[in-house]
Amino acid sequence: MTELDVASHDAITLETAPTRYIEGPGIRFAYRRLGLSTGTPLVLLQHFSGNIDAWDPAVVNALAADRPVIAFDNAGVGRSTGRTPDNVAAMARDAVDFIDLLGLAEVDLLGFSLGGCIAQQIAAEHGRLVRKLILVGTAPKGGEEHLLAVLQEAFSQTDAPDPRLPLFFTKSSASRSAGLAFLKRTKVRKNDRDTDNGRPVTDPQAKALITWCATPDPEHALLHAIRQPTLVASGSHDTMLPASNAYAMFKELSNAQLILYPDSGHGALFQHHETFVSHVRTFLDTQPPAA
């Protein structure tokens, strides 16, 4: 029996699920699980600086309505112990260790931003572990990024209630309104909230993301190693990891679909959460054609 077999589907949400822990060599991983106790688990890989409570409950809870969903803190993040690596390959190894500790032989991956880089690395190296892959607001090796410039701009906007508002959403009234609603949803949980560990997490994560995008892969070897069905999604006006990255991945992946969401930035999946969940469900539930 795996860890997931004992999960209860009854009214557990991201806001109410207990934070659980599982011990690995040198790392004690913090995670929450919700949704069904059967089916292929969907493992969530979080963005730069984010922890479990940075996920949007509107996305996570809706996805968990018909499948197991697992959100976790990778090494050094939130309530997980260990040191946050400064490279994507090590982050991917830690994530695979976590999945192995749960006793899971096959998973789907949803990687957002930096999490999408980690998801690519895992899918390329562990073909039998990953059934399907969802890449959101991310970039391939050698892709375009503007992390430091965008962070500097966002933190200079002192009138913003949260840096994620200018980071994840556009300046339009519709996008800003959706952003404020997103921020409100992420703050619903009051007890047992995850922790922000500051620069010991963000400094190595920034180095990992910048190095990933600065490392040329002219033959697209990593993308070509990914054989799993892949859904690539991006906001039309993502200033951190521009939508050109999504198109570049779509062209090089062997079995990919591409979705661009209108009037949206890095947090398109949160702004268009109902549509995004619908697209993800359709993608995950579609059976491959018979050989």
Score class of each variant (00 low, 15 high):
49 S>N: 15
186 T>S: 10
221 A>H: 08
126 H>R: 11
72 F>Y: 15
291 A>Y: 07
107 V>Q: 04
84 T>H: 00
274 E>P: 03
18 P>E: 14
134 I>E: 12
78 G>S: 01
84 T>E: 00
270 F>Y: 14
205 Q>A: 13
124 A>P: 03
177 S>M: 07
226 I>P: 08
1 M>D: 10
165 L>H: 00
166 P>Y: 04
239 T>E: 13
126 H>S: 04
234 S>N: 08
6 V>G: 07
76 G>D: 05
67 R>I: 09
216 P>D: 13
57 P>L: 08
256 A>T: 01
185 R>W: 11
143 G>F: 01
33 R>V: 05
175 S>P: 09
232 V>R: 00
288 P>A: 11
245 N>D: 14
245 N>L: 06
186 T>H: 07
200 P>R: 10
158 T>H: 14
226 I>H: 02
142 G>V: 00
266 H>K: 07
132 K>V: 02
21 Y>P: 09
107 V>T: 05
164 R>E: 15
38 T>S: 08
207 K>A: 15
90 A>V: 01
247 Y>H: 15
277 V>A: 13
49 S>E: 09
287 Q>C: 13
262 P>E: 04
199 R>S: 10
69 V>I: 11
121 Q>V: 06
22 I>M: 09
216 P>F: 02
224 H>F: 04
37 S>C: 07
282 T>R: 11
198 G>F: 02
45 L>S: 10
263 D>I: 00
31 Y>F: 15
51 N>K: 11
255 N>P: 00
192 D>L: 09
109 L>D: 07
150 V>A: 15
236 S>P: 03
30 A>G: 03
5 D>Y: 03
170 T>Y: 04
193 R>P: 06
54 A>I: 06
197 N>H: 03
231 L>P: 12
126 H>D: 04
100 D>N: 10
280 V>Y: 00
60 V>C: 14
190 K>W: 09
157 Q>I: 09
2 T>S: 12
190 K>L: 11
79 R>N: 07
216 P>G: 05
262 P>K: 01
106 E>I: 01
47 H>Q: 13
239 T>A: 14
284 L>V: 12
86 D>P: 03
55 W>S: 14
138 T>D: 08
213 C>K: 13
147 L>I: 15
173 S>F: 05
38 T>E: 08
229 P>C: 01
96 V>N: 02
266 H>G: 03
178 A>V: 08
154 A>F: 00
288 P>T: 01
14 L>Y: 10
19 T>D: 10
227 R>N: 12
232 V>P: 07
241 L>C: 06
250 F>R: 13
55 W>L: 11
79 R>G: 02
82 G>H: 02
268 A>W: 06
6 V>Y: 08
48 F>S: 01
39 G>A: 06
273 H>D: 14
261 Y>M: 11
127 G>H: 12
101 L>I: 05
43 V>A: 12
125 E>I: 01
53 D>P: 12
82 G>E: 02
118 I>C: 03
147 L>T: 14
237 H>G: 07
121 Q>G: 02
191 N>E: 12
249 M>K: 01
219 E>P: 03
263 D>E: 10
19 T>Y: 14
194 D>L: 09
4 L>A: 10
1 M>T: 09
197 N>S: 03
48 F>G: 10
281 R>L: 13
49 S>V: 08
217 D>W: 06
150 V>K: 15
199 R>G: 03
140 P>F: 04
278 S>A: 14
9 H>I: 07
225 A>L: 05
82 G>N: 02
221 A>S: 12
275 T>E: 10
166 P>D: 11
